[in-house]
Design a protein around this nucleic acid. Structure first.
Length: 484
RNA sequence: GGCGGGAUAGCCAAGUGGUAAGGCCGAGGUCUGCAAAACCUCUAUCGCGGGUUCGAUUCCCGCUCCCGCCUCCA
């Protein structure tokens, strides 16, 4: 497939350098609170990326870290009266629950900084040996940016510019240069019990170091792709490159994949603006992780995506999610119409279309949905892929297909849905509990309708409406749905 | 100031040097007692001003706004 590369600023072909497995690293969350939907935009797109690679026939090795020691995790664990490990375990579990609801494939490895202190120390030692790092008075160790000639190649910032920006808020006068960054942070009283021994004294690793060390540990000196949100380009990934490449003398990654941020109602999401959203909140509003996933992939990953949370009246009703739900519903209905064509004669084959079975689905067997997958191979164009799914649906006439044709189209649809990681919802789901009184009214109306007593039927329909329920007549029965 | 991304119908959002996918919402229609569903149809000259070109939304220049990064951040 083709994908944009931040380092070269071009769209380039992706190939596993070992010719077999595509090995990539994604910067994961800092586990000190619930992840927000902006974080999930990144993780969801990375997941679509992985699925696209795998479904095109290339196995992957996916590593995503958990940042489990930094200022925030230490501060908040202390405030919660928990050990750092207890605290981060709790938020890690919560993160995993959210990931499952969003249908994210678990990474093959999910290492944390705390579990890789020796590897990080070893990396610092290598940098010290080669003259890329120095110890300060207080026992911290800093990376000497001026020692790495290529510093700035990813973010295209030169040192002069860096200095201007960094000079403002910097209070770390231990450093030789304001551009230098901490590899090892000397123990401070407020760190409490959260410190480790090192050749330079007690302390804890700097943020950028963990990724360099764990990339090396799980993927080797050079691997295929490194990914994260655009905000990580500088300084995080720039610093990772400086650390890793200075230590090994080899390029860190062949490809850099960065994801543009989500906007909420046209602006940046922040707690102070009251537009900071988590999956919990979205579920409380009656939407699912699947709805959110659809909304998050509805724009190209290099474009800002405007998540609309408030309607024209300023009410928080999540128009973006309502649209996503309707769109998914249409897909589900088309899916059901296809199944109807072949299931009666060939039995149920739903079990034969899990993610793993579909990995082997040949292109010729993807029917009208083959072009949608092609869109993903072209720089992961998820909105184009969705557009092509609906074009195929519009063109498709399930009623005119033979059972074999319907089965092929259905597998094609499921294949693309798996690539996008979207679940096909049950079309006839009943989203809320139906009160006894409502059920009784509905039964009465159904009887009146059967007796062609239209007047009674209509007045009962109105009565149900006042209770907030809508009755949908079918050929063989009715459905009740909450109005709205 | 530096680096980068935007500006496409009511909303969301693709795309192309030859007069613009798709989704949501809305309107009209077919159908079914009604309603719903389904299906069909309809809704944009692509921020502004120049330039290149037979022809630009798509390339170039300038401008105006918006957003991100340059300090922790997906």
């Amino acid at each position: 497939m083709k994908l944009h590369d931040t380092l070269s600023r071009t769209v380039r072909d992706l190939r596993p350098r070992d010719g077999r497995t595509f090995r990539f690293y994604c910067c994961g969350p800092t586990v000190y609170g619930p992840a927000h939907i902006g974080n999930f935009r990144t993780f969801v797109l990375q997941d679509v990326f992985r699925r696209t690679i795998e479904l095109s026939g290339v196995p992957t090795r996916h590593v995503r870290n958990l940042t489990d020691v930094d200022d925030k995790t230490i501060r908040d664990s202390q405030a919660a009266g928990q050990t750092l490990v207890e605290f981060t375990r709790h938020w890690t579990e919560r993160f995993h629950e959210d990931c499952a609801k969003l249908n994210l494939l678990p990474p093959h490895e999910e290492p944390g900084a705390v579990g890789h202190i020796p590897q990080q120390i070893a990396l610092i030692e290598a940098l010290m040996e080669k003259g890329h790092a120095y110890r300060s008075e207080d026992g911290s160790v800093y990376y000497k940016v001026s020692s790495f000639g290529e510093y700035g190649k990813l973010s295209h910032l030169d040192r002069r510019e860096l200095r201007l920006g960094a000079a403002v808020a910097d209070d770390e006068y231990e450093k030789d240069s304001v551009a230098d960054f901490a590899l090892w942070k000397a123990r401070k009283p407020e760190d409490g019990d959260n410190w480790w021994d090192s050749p330079w004294g007690p302390g804890r690793p700097g943020w950028h170091l963990e990724c360099s060390a764990m990339c090396r540990e799980y993927l080797g000196e050079t691997f295929d792709l490194h990914s994260g949100g655009v905000d990580l380009i500088f300084p995080h990934h720039e610093n990772e490159i400086a650390q890793s490449e200075a230590a090994t003398g080899h390029p860190m990654a062949d490809h850099w994949f960065h994801l543009t941020h989500l906007l909420v109602d046209g602006g940046k999401m922040s707690k102070s603006l009251g537009n900071f959203h988590t999956l919990d909140q979205i579920e409380a509003a009656g939407f699912t992780g699947n709805d959110l996933r659809y909304a998050l992939i509805s724009a190209h990953y290099r474009q800002p995506l405007n998540f609309v949370a408030r309607d024209k009246e300023g009410k928080e009703s999540f128009p973006s999610l309502a649209g996503a739900r309707q769109a998914l519903e249409r897909i589900a209905k088309f899916d059901a119409a296809l199944r109807e064509r072949f299931e009666t004669q060939q039995g149920t084959v739903a079990d034969s279309t899990g993610y793993d079975q579909l990995r082997a689905l040949p292109e010729a067997d993807r029917g009208a949905f083959a072009p949608a997958f092609e869109a993903l191979l072209n720089d992961l164009n998820t909105p184009d892929a969705l557009g092509r799914v609906f074009s195929a649906i519009r063109e498709g006439k399930p009623a005119e297909l033979s059972p074999d044709e319907a089965l092929r189209e259905w597998r094609g649809l499921r294949f693309v849905m798996e690539a996008l990681g979207l679940r096909v919802p049950e079309p006839d789901r009943e989203s809320a509990e139906i009160p006894e009184a409502v059920r009784a009214l509905a039964e009465k109306r159904w009887a009146a309708r059967a007796a062609k007593d239209w007047a009674t039927a209509d007045s009962l329909r109105a009565e149900l409406g006042e209770l907030g329920w809508e009755m949908k007549d079918g050929r063989e029965g009715y459905e009740l749905a909450p109005k709205g």
